[in-house]
Structures are given as structure tokens and as C-alpha cells.
Design a protein around this nucleic acid. Sequence first.
DNA 1: GATGAATGAGAGTTCATTCAT
DNA 2: CATGAATGAACTCTCATTCAT
Lengths: 193, 193, 193, 193
Amino acid sequence: MCPRTSHQFEDIRKEKRHLILESALVIFAKKGYHGASISIIASEAGISKGLIYNYFKSKEDILKETLIGGFEHIFQHYRFDPQTFTPKEFVNLIELTFDLLEKDHSHWKIYFSVLMQTEVMEIIQDKLMDILFPIIEDFKAYFKKLGYEKPLEEARFFGAIIDGLSLSYITDPENFPKEYCINRLKSIYNLPL
Amino acid sequence: MCPRTSHQFEDIRKEKRHLILESALVIFAKKGYHGASISIIASEAGISKGLIYNYFKSKEDILKETLIGGFEHIFQHYRFDPQTFTPKEFVNLIELTFDLLEKDHSHWKIYFSVLMQTEVMEIIQDKLMDILFPIIEDFKAYFKKLGYEKPLEEARFFGAIIDGLSLSYITDPENFPKEYCINRLKSIYNLPL
Amino acid sequence: MCPRTSHQFEDIRKEKRHLILESALVIFAKKGYHGASISIIASEAGISKGLIYNYFKSKEDILKETLIGGFEHIFQHYRFDPQTFTPKEFVNLIELTFDLLEKDHSHWKIYFSVLMQTEVMEIIQDKLMDILFPIIEDFKAYFKKLGYEKPLEEARFFGAIIDGLSLSYITDPENFPKEYCINRLKSIYNLPL
Amino acid sequence: MCPRTSHQFEDIRKEKRHLILESALVIFAKKGYHGASISIIASEAGISKGLIYNYFKSKEDILKETLIGGFEHIFQHYRFDPQTFTPKEFVNLIELTFDLLEKDHSHWKIYFSVLMQTEVMEIIQDKLMDILFPIIEDFKAYFKKLGYEKPLEEARFFGAIIDGLSLSYITDPENFPKEYCINRLKSIYNLPL
DNA sequence: GATGAATGAGAGTTCATTCAT
DNA sequence: CATGAATGAACTCTCATTCAT
């Protein structure tokens, strides 16, 4: 009855693991790291508390995996080849950002949430840097190609603005002037309407 | 021999209360609301756990007082008369922001931290709105005077940028291109160098 | 290897819940509500403090369950049909009372203890009234049938006497003149010896 | 200014001590021993917490003194000379009981409250016995003179009834049928109306 | 005699984690 | 693989008691 005879353990494991991470993300985003309990995550996932420890060795471990997955998910959209990157694509990237904010609300919320908590940052900052650094490099190269005198600084400036707008959107989506901000960004960077 | 005078007691209370709030600010900024324990705040202040409850009725009360004090402290600098506000003063305001970020690191950090934690936001959001709303109104009036077609939206856009730059500074002060960003803001708003 | 069946879990829960209530009853009876600590109840039950909260949501909850269970247990014996109630049965009821006092010492002790503590009374007084009221009504009807002019007052008088004798028994069982008191009650109510 | 020059320390001490005991009695009766805090007692007395420890060495000490004083206060009325005790005086004693219940509600409430808490009882039970025993002896002698075959048992029976009626009155004074119960007692003991 | 700031032990409660099944 | 009963450390908070003034 009880012992599985199936040979597809691997698939089951992968799926369950994913399910747990998804559930954890939702709860972390809603309650923050400390406010999220393993019990709630388990019941969100529809499994028992104990089973979670079959897949992750600690709550911190779940957070780390959740974050890394989330960051990769978000920031994969910001990779491009600076040499062939066009203004049109730049516009698309900006517009994409706000689409993602809507679709992946939890991922973004947790991203900002984590930026603010020293202890949590320490857990994942190396990994986060691994993800962000190449993106900054891409933008630096792109701005350099465009003739900016200080391309690294401009890349950071641009990144900060995107963060600020995203934060503002996350905090109060209903009152955020999305179209207006997109147009302002276009005008700042002389992009095609 | 004789009882302390009530004046002496008042002094002690005022000082200790301030000490506790200062210590709480540091710990909240470092660990977030849930991560900060009364024990740690007490030991940061060099007093016993119990004493804290002689001054505040709950942890939430400490947070509230900390935040309200902090927000008032930070945002008092952003009040101005839109009718007489000059570009030179606008420049000063921008430069002031980065000075404040340096000087009041903890206050700002906790400000952003709180924006991200739903539960904490609920505790103080009314008070925060009371503080932020008039500032947005001032900027709206100012931008309207400058001829912006959508002054409210511009005020929000500007606020989001300031938040983004501040967040970026807070997260990694050493690599933040402060001068560059100030100059970029000046150019975006056609301000005098 | 295999998970426990839900039937097994149910058994464990039922037993442990019962164990906790039994232990709580003993401690409440000995120390009163405020004097009884969760720690002591847990150690009386031979379990950890934490486990108690797996079964009850608060100390007050434990008290409520303890009391309601106890009161129902005690007072179920005092329900009868006033129309068919005989003097012989009345005698039995009186004798039963003292038997119960011996057997359910803790239940009775806590009953009296609770009567005296305003705060505790507030917690369960509605429930207690639900239990006691019909009993008083039964006695009222019975005394009315017997021809008492003020049956409600007599019911209260009788109840008070039973309480007084019980209290006296509980306080010092060894010196309580049980047989004598039973006979005195019989004579007061003209009951058969 | 501060050091008293007066020589009437003794009077001040006696008065203050009495004030503290009065206040403690009120609070103990309202909240029970554990529920009553030194702070509340102090503020009921209009003095500082610290001062209480100038007069009593512990909270338990206050309770003990409160109780002994209270019991002496209550039970002084029940001393009489069995040889000269008349039925008329017996009636008076019964009626007095209910008067006292009204006037000294707190004393009585705490008396019953204490009877139920083993730990508290242990603190004062010797003293209480010293007070109660001679009263029981008096009633025993009186009932013996009246011709009761088992005067000690009757004394205990009578005491229990008084306790029961008192308890009933204390618990719910408004619905207690005072006159009815007095008359019933008179009829049971063949006393003049 | 009198104050209340200060302490520290212990209260009720939560929760990450373990483990027998 | 899966369960949830069980633990224990740490949490927020209370309060009897002490002590400098």
C-alpha cells in the first residue's frame, strides 16, 4: 500500500519542490519573512509541515531559493546584447517593466522587501549581485555606445529610477500614473513614442 | 533621604524615552519590525527589558513613535511655499536629500523598510499619509506653476525618482554616483548648475 | 515508513486533550485560575508547554472547557421531572450530592472557586446559567407541587443550603458530619428516612 | 523641609498602615489575590508602590494581615455567652449576618474566595481556626443547652447553612430572597418571628 | 517618610524543527 | 514519500521587589 513502487520519484520531487516555492513566495510577499510561518506556507501548498523539511533544510533555505528563483525570473528580461540593442527595444524594455510589475507582483514586492532587511540581504546578496552585475554591465555598454560620458553612472541612475518607479507602483498600484511615467522616461532618453 | 523632585523624574523620563526610541530606530532599521526583539532593543539601550514597558505600552507603540518621529524629522525639509519656490531652492532641496540620506541613514532605511511591510504599513499609514499628502500637493502646485500639463502626475513621478535614488543610495552608499545623479536631475528639470 | 492513519491521530488527540483537561482541573482547583500557570499544567500532564497550544488556543480556553465539562458532569445529576419526582428520589438526590462530593472533589472545588472570582465568572457565567437555570426551574415546579407558597424562593433556599453543605464538606471533608446533615435535611423537608 | 521634625511618627504609621490594608481589601475582593497588583493597591491608597514596602514586607504579608483583620472584623459579631444566649438574640444574630453581608461585602467576598484557594488557605488557616473554633464551641454549648443530641454536628450544620446563604447572597445579591431565608431559618430553629 | 525608575523572574504564547509512525 | 504530535527556545509582556534620591 504505502511504499511507492513508481520509479518517477524524481518528477514528483521536482514538482513538489516547485509547489512549495510558489506557495512560500505568496506568503513571504504577503507577510514578510518573519511574519510567514512554515505552517501557513505548508497549508498554502496543501501539504504537511513535516514534508517541507523533506525538500528544504530550513526556513532560511526556502527564502534563499524563493528569492534566487524570483530574481532570476524578473531579471532575465533585462539581458540584451548592447551592440545590437535598439531604441525601440529600449522602449519595449521599459514597457515590459510595468507589465511585469502587474503580473509578478509578489516577486517584485519581495525583491524590494528584501533589499531593506540587512539580515536577509546578507543571505542572498552574493547571488543577487551575480544576477544584477551583468545587467548593469550591459546598460553601461549600451549607454557608452550612445555616447554618454559616464556610462556606468548613467546605468546606475537609470536603474535607480526604474527601482523608484517600481517601488511606487508596488506600494500603491491604483494611483500610479503608469502611462505618464513611461512617456517621461521616453522623453528623458529621447526614445521613439 | 528626600524623594526626588518631580522635575528630576521628568528629566529622567524624557532622556530615557529618547534613548529607547534611538535604540529602537537602530534595531528596527537593521532587522525590520518582526526581526527586532524587545530584548535586543533593551540591550542596545543598555537597560532591562522590563523598563521599556515603563515607557511604552507595547512593541507596536514603540514602532509607531519611532516612525512618526522619524518621518516628521525627514519630511519637514520638504515643505515649501509653491508660489515663491525658486529653481535655486529646488536645487537645494535635491542636494539636501542626499545630505539627509547620509546623516539620517537609519530614518530613511526604516522609511523604505516600512513601505514594504504590509502589517507595519497598516499601523502607521494614516499618519504617514498626513505627512506625505501636503508635500505632494506642494509639488503639484509648483509643477502647475511651471506649466506642466499634468502636475499631479509629475509630482508623483518626481517623488518616485527621489525614492528610487534614495533607495539606491541606502542600499549601497559607497558606489552611489551622488554628484552625477544630482546633475542629471538638474538637467531633467532645467535647473541652474 | 507509512504515515499514521488519521484514525490513529484522532485517538492521540482525543486522549491528550482529555489528559490536559484533567491536569488543568487539578491545578485550577488547587491554585485558582490566575495562580495556575500553563507551565505547571503542562508538567502535571507530563508534556511540554508548547503542546498545550496544539490543543487549546489560550489559557482561558482551557479554563472554559474545563469548567463547562465539569459543570455538566456535576449538574446532570440534578435534572428530573418535577411532576413525577418523589420524596424517595429527593432523598436519593441529597445522598447523591455527598457521594459526588467525594468522587468529584476537584470539580466541585473549582465550581466554588469560580463562583468567587469575578473575572472567571465573566468568562463562563452565561454557560453556567444555561446549566443552572433549568435545575432551579425544576425545583421551583417541584416545590410548587408540594404546596410551598413561594416555590422559587424555596428553590433558592434549598440550593443555598446544598451549596453551604458542599462548601463545608469540600473545605474540611474529614470533620464534616455527613450522615447528620443528610438526616437534618430529611427532617426539614419531611422526607422518609 | 524634608526631614520630619514631628514626634508623632507612630500615629502616621498606624494610619497609613490602615489605609493600605483597606485599599488592599477592596482590590483583593475585586480581583482576587493574583489579579491584584501592588501598583493598583498603591494607587487605590493614593501612595507610591515603594511606600507599601515600608509597611509590609511582601504582598503575601499584606494578604495575611488583610485577611486576619477581615475575619476578626466579621466574626467578632458571633461571640456570645451560651449560658445566657436567648432565642431573641439568636434571631438578631441571623439578621445581623445579612446586614453584615451588605455592609462588609468585601470582607465576606474575600473570606469565601480564600476558603477555595489551597495556597492562600495554608497561609492563614491556623489563624482562621483560632478565630472560628471558639465560635463553633459557643454554638455547640448553646445547642447542647437547647437539648440537641449532637450539638457539635448541629453547630457545623448551622455554620454550613449560614455559609451557603452568605455565599448565595454574595454571588447574586439582587435576586437573593433575604426575608424568605431569614424566616425559613427561624422556622427551622423554632425562633420567635 | 516617600518616590518611582529599574530589575529580573516568570507569565502566556508562537513557531521552526524533529521524529515516530 | 508523508503526517502532525511533540519539543524547546525565544518571543512579548507583567509585576513583586529593590534602591538611589
